[in-house]
């Protein structure tokens, strides 16, 4: 579980699980929030590199973290987003509050 979090300075990278459903989202939230508070995190990168399933519980999890970070003036982004995950992010409207990248940020950016 701890392997899915990487802290660099005040940035937290969350390696999203293969299947981001209600069950996995609940587990991630607890771990992420502990780090966000204890390490004074100001930006979050959601890495979807190995994720092939997400439902609205994943959206709830992202929005919750976004609110925490945004409140303190921080930013969130999603990287290595495949077509399926992109569709879910678009459908839910989350794309409006975060930058979404197909690969890494220096590579192609999705609208």
């Amino acid at each position: 579980m701890e392997d899915c979090f990487k802290v660099t300075g005040r940035n937290l990278t969350i390696i999203m699980p293969c299947e981001l459903d209600h069950h996995n989202a609940e587990k991630l939230k607890t771990g992420a929030d502990r780090i966000i508070q204890s390490r004074n995190i100001r930006s979050i990168v959601f890495d979807f590199g190995k994720t092939n399933f997400m439902d609205s519980s994943g959206i709830g999890m992202i929005m919750g973290r976004y609110k925490m970070i945004h409140f303190m003036g921080g930013k969130v982004m999603a990287i290595r987003v495949n077509q399926r995950i992109r569709r879910i992010l678009t459908l839910s409207g989350v794309y409006k509050v975060m930058e979404i990248y197909e690969g890494l940020p220096q590579q192609s950016k999705l609208s």
Partner: peptide
Amino acid sequence: EEERAGMGFAFMEA
């Protein structure tokens, strides 16, 4: 309060 997005039925319909 449990961070439910309120998107469940919308996703089912989509």
